[in-house]
Deep mutational scan, measured.
Amino acid sequence: TLKVHYKYTVVMKTQPGLPYSQVRDMVSKKLELRLEHTKLSYRPRDSNELVPLSEDSMKDAWGQVKNYCLTLWCE
């Protein structure tokens, strides 16, 4: 499951381990945003700071799954 905080919160079913490009595509379609305006980030467990997502950091983000849910933020 993927939970995304935006102006409102959406929850989507997804497969764990998807690459950033696929996750961003899913989120942009769900929120009806243009792909270039979809910026995603996540919060590591040991931090209060949001970390921007990229293809490289997506593996780390999937490591933050809690209760089968990855929580992301969209700007």
Rank of each mutant, 00 (worst) to 15 (best):
W62K: 03
Q64Y: 04
V10E: 04
Q15R: 11
K29V: 06
P44R: 14
S57A: 10
K59Q: 14
Q22Y: 09
T9H: 02
R45E: 13
D46I: 07
H37E: 15
R43I: 10
E32F: 02
T9W: 06
H5Q: 03
G17C: 03
A61G: 07
P19C: 11
S41C: 08
S28G: 00
Y20R: 02
E49F: 12
S21R: 12
K66L: 05
T1N: 09
Y20A: 00
K59I: 13
H37R: 06
R43G: 01
H37N: 09
S47M: 06
Y68E: 15
L53P: 04
R43C: 06
L18S: 09
Q22L: 07
P44T: 14
R45F: 13
S54K: 12
V4P: 00
L2I: 15
V23A: 02
S21G: 11
T9R: 01
L53T: 00
L33W: 04
W62C: 11
K59N: 13
E55Q: 07
D46V: 02
W73V: 01
S28W: 05
M26G: 02
P16D: 10
A61W: 01
D56A: 13
D56S: 12
H5I: 11
R43Q: 11
Q15S: 11
V10T: 09
C69G: 06
D25A: 14
Q64E: 13
L18F: 05
V23Y: 09
S21H: 15
T1S: 07
A61L: 00
R45Q: 13
K30G: 03
D46F: 11
D56Y: 06
K39N: 11
D25N: 12
E32T: 03
K66Q: 15
M26C: 00
L40S: 01
D60W: 04
K30T: 05
V23P: 00
C74P: 03
K3L: 07
S54W: 03
Y42A: 02
N67Q: 09
Y20S: 07
V27P: 02
N48T: 14
S54E: 06
V51H: 05
V27A: 05
Q15C: 09
K3H: 00
Y8N: 13
P44E: 08
Y42F: 08
Q22M: 13
G17I: 08
G17R: 05
W62D: 01
R43E: 00
Y68F: 12
L33V: 02
M58K: 07
L18D: 07
Q64F: 06
V27L: 01
K59W: 04
L40A: 00
L72K: 04
S57I: 07
Q22D: 12
V65Q: 13
C74T: 04
Q22I: 13
K30F: 02
T9D: 05
Y68M: 15
K59C: 06
D60G: 08
Q15V: 12
N67M: 00
P44W: 05
W73S: 07
K66H: 09
L50N: 08
N67E: 09
K39E: 00
L31Q: 04
T38Y: 00
S54C: 10
W73N: 04
M58V: 04
C69A: 06
E49C: 13
A61C: 14
L2D: 08
T38D: 03
S54Q: 08
D60M: 06
V4L: 00
P44A: 13
D56H: 13
W62E: 01
Y8I: 07
T14D: 05
L33A: 00
L53V: 00
Y68N: 15
P16E: 15
S41H: 12
K30M: 07
E49L: 10
Y68R: 15
G17D: 14
L72M: 06
S21F: 12
T71P: 05
V65G: 11
T9N: 07
K7S: 09
P52R: 07
E55L: 08
L50G: 09
E49N: 09
Y42V: 06
T71Y: 06
S21M: 10
G63K: 15
K13C: 10
K3I: 14
K30R: 14
L33I: 14
T9A: 01
T71I: 01
L31V: 00
W73M: 05
D56C: 02
P52G: 04
K29G: 03
S21A: 14
S57R: 11
E55G: 00
S57H: 00
C69W: 01
V65R: 09
Y42D: 05
W62L: 02
V27T: 01
K39Y: 14
D56Q: 12
V11P: 05
T38P: 04
S47E: 07
T38K: 07
E32V: 02
Y20H: 04
L40T: 04
Y6N: 07
V65E: 12
Q64T: 15
E36A: 06
H5M: 01
Q22T: 12
L31W: 07
H5S: 03
E49G: 09
Q64H: 13
P19A: 11
H5T: 02
K13F: 07
K66C: 06
V51D: 09
Y68A: 15
K66E: 15
N67G: 12
K13E: 14
D25L: 10
P19G: 10
L53D: 02
G17K: 01
P19D: 11
Y6W: 14
R43D: 04
D56V: 07
E32P: 00
T14N: 07
M58W: 01
D56P: 03
N48A: 13
S41P: 03
V11G: 04
D46W: 11
Q15I: 10
Q15A: 11
D25P: 07
S28T: 04
K29N: 09
